[in-house]
């Protein structure tokens, strides 16, 4: 199957993974993933996520980049009979994120996620942001208020909504809703923030705001972002991974990957000849 799907006369070989320069937040080791219907979406992925850096996952539709991203906070556990193989090791404790012995709730408290389509709860803006704290049983009102404000400021939304925190989160525009979702993810102070094509449903101006936000946020949190948009990856990411048909083809510093890719498939994809 892979042979026929491979474009042109390219050799379907993965380039050995490049090591990141700084400290590593998460290390993906020989990671494979099977969906419940038996389809293998990821094949032996090896990848390092640098701490306080932005790592972008790019590739054509169906390449498994969202599947990989959703493995980081065990979103696949929601649906029965999905299977993980291999490891995703989280530093500094060196725990395996996809290990069956680890409670997925613990992981999700440390690894937050922002989805493709803005999905605020049909509750007030305040309650949207506070939800992550509420489920932890946080009852200190002053602390919740403070965290909500900090998170909304962190998501560059505070000035726009500070006078209407009790309004429904659904009353906001699409771009604001997505930043509200980012604030919601920030409120619980995660170590890794996952973005699954966060600007796919947004207009260009909202997209710019979210991109600026991603660059700003990496000061405090490690970011993994899935995007269809190669320019976006070039703009926001420090490291970029190119995936194809469930395999990691090339992973490198973004500048290097975009200017001098070592794998001819990466070059073909970046120049728009397939994908």
């Amino acid at each position: 199957m892979t042979a026929t799907a491979t474009p042109g006369n390219l050799k379907f070989t993965a380039t050995p993974p490049t090591e990141v320069l700084g400290p590593v937040k998460a290390r993906v080791k020989d990671f494979s993933f099977h969906y419940a219907n038996g389809f293998q979406a990821l094949k032996s992925i090896n990848l390092s996520v640098a701490e306080n850096q932005v790592t972008a996952l790019i590739g054509p539709s169906g390449c498994g980049k969202s599947t990989l991203l959703r493995s980081f906070n065990r979103m696949h556990d929601l649906y029965a009979r999905n299977r993980y193989h291999g490891e995703i090791i989280l530093s500094p404790e060196n725990i395996n994120l996809v290990g069956p012995e680890l409670d997925p709730i613990e992981i999700r408290m440390r690894v937050s996620m922002v989805f493709q389509k803005p999905n605020p709860f049909p509750k007030s803006i305040f309650e949207n942001v506070a939800f992550g704290l509420r489920v932890r049983g946080e009852r200190n009102k002053a602390y919740v208020n403070q965290r909500v404000e900090e998170s909304l400021r962190g998501a560059a939304l505070w000035d726009e909504v500070k006078d209407r925190l009790d309004q429904s989160g659904l009353a906001l525009s699409g771009g604001q809703q997505q930043r509200l979702c980012i604030a919601r993810a920030l409120a619980t102070d995660p170590e890794i923030l996952l973005f699954d094509e966060p600007t796919a449903a947004l207009d260009p101006i909202s997209t710019t705001k979210v991109e600026d936000l991603v660059v700003e946020l990496k000061k405090t949190v490690t970011i993994v972002i899935v995007t269809h948009n190669m320019q976006q990856a070039a703009r926001v990411a420090d490291y970029t991974a190119f995936m194809y048909l469930g395999e990691l083809i090339e992973f490198d510093v973004t500048n290097k990957l975009f200017t001098t890719p070592t794998n001819p498939m990466t070059e073909q994809y970046l120049t728009g000849r397939f994908g």
Binding site: M75, I105, S112, F115, F131, V135, R136
Partner: peptide, 13 residues
């Protein structure tokens, strides 16, 4: 499902 994922993703049981 996005609502469920959003809630579960924030660490809710």
């Amino acid at each position: 499902n996005t609502i469920r994922e959003a809630s579960i993703g924030l660490g809710a049981t």
